[in-house]
Amino acid sequence: MLRKFAIIFLVITINSNLFAAESSKEKLIKQDWSFNGITGTYDKAAIQRGLKVYQEVCAGCHSMNLIYYRDLEDIGFSKEQIKVIASEYTVLDGPNDEGEMFERPARPADKFVDPYMNAQEARLSNNGSYPPDLSVINKSRKGGADYIYNLLIGYEEPPADIVLGEGMYYNKWMDGKQIAMPTPLYDGSVDYEDGTENTAIQLAKDVTVFLQWAAEPELEERKRLGVKVILFFIIFGIFVFLSKRRLWKQIH
């Protein structure tokens, strides 16, 4: 009796957050992401396309200050390519020997360059709203990648009964249904080099994959190791079970 109760307790406890996340609101349109599931991996081509979307669209307002240019090696860029990518940005360094700050091209060991000097400047340029840092955005929103994807394509004409604030847009996935970010992605906003069609939906998908990678760069390694660890516990468990059975045979 108590045993069954304990198992139910355990299962519900683990799942309670999931229930909490999904109740009340409209259901997110779930995507079949390649990184889902036990053997999930990243589609590197999609991450690279997503990086391009980030650089050309998002990076105008959103920082990613936990990511380094060197991290791009993970998604299939060579060291030389990364140097070129980094050198397109300028960072403020210093002080030099004369005690002055100076600008220099970014290096692979630098973090992604912020679009604004500080939070105040960011607010000033964005109508008082602060564009959140995107480094761990997929981990910091309920629904994760699905939420981000839906948000990006979730812009609609506001229903008649809703009065939008000044400079606000209607997006049914946002808390309060109003968002300060204008529609970021349109068909053809970004040109892809690999010939993938650049519809708004495709752009949203790719940038979501990129953000997922940025939030969880360890995902592939984690899942691979997880399979091994669980296998170990199963094998060890079988041996222990056999040992236990033999030992306890003499009791009773």
């Binding site: 355990l10 997880g226 399979v227 669980i230 516990f233 468990g237």
Partner: peptide, 11 residues
């Protein structure tokens, strides 16, 4: 216990 906690830690 190890199987359950690993499932959560890794997945």
């Amino acid at each position: 216990f190890g199987i359950i906690i690993s499932a959560v830690i890794f997945f």
